[in-house]
Amino acid sequence: MNRQEMADEALFQLLHTEIVSYVYKSAEQGEMESGRCVTKLENMGFRVGQGLIERFTKDTARFKDELDVMKFICKDFWTSVFKKQIDNLRTNHQGIYVLQDNKFRLLTQMSAGKQYLEHAPKYLAFTCGIVRGALSNLGIKSIVTVEVTAMPACKFQVMIQKM
């Protein structure tokens, strides 16, 4: 049996929720400013993204260019991690990419509309890190941010940093 496909989604989602609440709880206790929570979650995601991309790309051909990499992230990578493709990829061809997911996996259980909208960023920081970590291990330095106007849809913006 394929080990890769054997974990259960509920377990990951609950673990993710616990991680978010752990990070925010330690902020409440004054151990750090709450602004740093997002950074902390993002950094944890970064490590995970690095690890994942290493394993996913070990049998793929070399990428042609930046756009090729982004396509890989939107299709194969997103499918392996979140079980669906990115719904829309846009770029200005100057290093900015917008990845839109209309039904993002970590938000679908939470709300379908504007309720709890103010909490959405907490639950997306980890994923921003995953994307940044994945790109980083493919040699692309970037800044990844996210925007949510109504759950469960969200838009990730990837800004490529020229080295």
Partner: peptide, 8 residues
């Protein structure tokens, strides 16, 4: 409900 266990 199966997902990539490496992510977990």
């Amino acid at each position: 409900k199966k997902m990539n266990s490496e992510l977990f």
